[in-house]
Design a binder for these strands. Structure first.
Lengths: 263, 263
DNA sequence: TCTTATTTGTTCGTATGTATT
DNA sequence: GAATACATACGAACAAATAAG
């Protein structure tokens, strides 16, 4: 134990407010006193209160609404179980959106998923490279907005080579029982291996608007790829998730070592 | 494309500086002009410059040193390949610190790992619960500071039931060839399954000091657990990693579904 | 060691802009 | 339109860390 590092005022105020919230002085859904009132109460300037609230925003503890006030958030973190998500059994049992549905319902919330884009496009560079496409090759883009009880929680954008998508008949909203993966499997192009690369970053302007984030909040960016038995990629997907409302779960056996030559 | 959303000044300044950095006007390792100079140059107040720099800090693009200046960072993101990390073959080939070593050396950096704590202690509540300990049971704490070319990049704290640690003879710094897991395996308590729960959060005061972070930066918190063939946990570990310097990689086969009853 | 200049960190008062009620 | 509430911006001032002498 060292001596208490002297803390700046706005951080002390943040600690104070966090404590008050967790202790129930301001229960979930309630509105905090205005910044002006808090300033008088605590004895600091309004700018300092504002800065303290920035921290609580970054933590996802409050939601600040301009002109209205600052409300205490109530969203429990959602567990994303990556392995379970793509198990063939789970897919065929619950349908294409089964995994997301289950993740949300488990918390007593209501899942919703809107397809906002579904068409052939020229792929972004990262997708073209990852999928090993030739110049001029097009892809099927499939972009979804996903909600938990009307709170936006996930933005998923997937890219599949257009030729393959047409052949598999997954260019419509309804991809049939088991979803896209099952259609690909019927062509002998079903995924047998998945990879995910995870990083955290500042949101783009789009994401900031969709999730209603402050620029000091971060999102998980998950690059999800599906591989065939021939070790060829058939899907490149970017999932964007606000960090404060998700916990990512993985599990794997110690023995199964993938020989793979890629580094 | 919508009309350009009008951006606040500090964000425009952040965009400007980010562009200058990526375009090479301020190469890695160089020092930016002082906030005062930038303020005059750009034509905004110093407070606005300061706020813009907060954003670049959160992105890990610059490192701000009070009294000295603001330097452009040069650390490339490190790839953490979780599955490969705990493969038995990799462990026995490279030794206990093999995975971390390889991750760092791959980038041309020099790895270092200091054990800063290694002793029996009363477990924190989360660890006791996760390990299924009885009240009064102690644990071996093993806390490590890890560096890449003297930059702090990882803080690892592991907890192993003390009785088990003693029996396996892993209470010293030198745990022998293959490390702790190999000693446990010799007792029939070797891990056969791993789980990791990942979230991102604001750093604690300790972490902030160790990594030299601003409070608007976030860290990955990875709860790593090792399970025996009897499905009992033998290790509870918390890894803390600044989000901006890591990419987490996972992969798994589509077919292997773990039956497990836990939800 | 002490002093001074430089540089970033924090805070305030004040003012103005924008969104909501 | 008026009142309320958060967002941004500036200038000024002082605190704290560092570097140069």
């Amino acid at each position: 134990m060292t001596v208490d590092a002297p803390k700046s005022r706005y951080r002390q105020v943040a600690d104070l407010l966090r404590r008050d919230i967790t202790l129930g002085k301001y229960p979930p859904g309630s509105t905090l006193p205005s910044e002006q009132d808090l300033a008088s109460e605590v004895g600091v300037s309004r700018v300092t209160i504002n800065r303290a609230l920035q921290i609580l925003r970054a933590e996802g503890m409050v939601r600040v609404l301009r002109g209205r006030g600052t409300v205490v958030r109530s969203v429990p973190p959602i567990d994303r179980h990556s392995n379970r998500r793509y198990a063939r059994a789970a897919r065929e049992e619950h349908g294409a959106r089964g995994a997301f549905d289950a993740e949300i319902r488990r918390l007593g919330l209501i899942p919703r998923s809107d397809i906002v884009q579904l068409e052939p496009v020229d792929p972004p560079e990262a997708a073209a490279k990852a999928l090993g496409l030739d110049p001029g090759d097009r892809v099927l883009i499939r972009k979804r907005h996903m909600y938990a009880s009307d709170e936006p929680v996930l933005l998923a954008t997937s890219y599949i080579p257009w030729a393959l998508a047409e052949q598999a008949g997954v260019t419509n909203k309804n991809t049939g029982p088991g979803g896209t993966y099952s259609r690909l499997a019927e062509l002998g192009q079903g995924p047998v291996r998945f990879t995910e690369d995870i990083r955290a970053r500042i949101p783009t302007d789009d994401e900031e608007a969709f999730f209603d984030l402050a620029e000091n909040q971060q999102i998980f960016e998950i690059i999800h790829m599906s591989w065939t038995v021939d070790d060829r990629p058939v899907e490149y997907r970017i999932d964007a998730l606000p960090t404060f409302q998700w916990i990512l779960h993985f599990e794997w056996p110690a023995e199964v070592v993938n020989p793979d030559g890629r580094s």
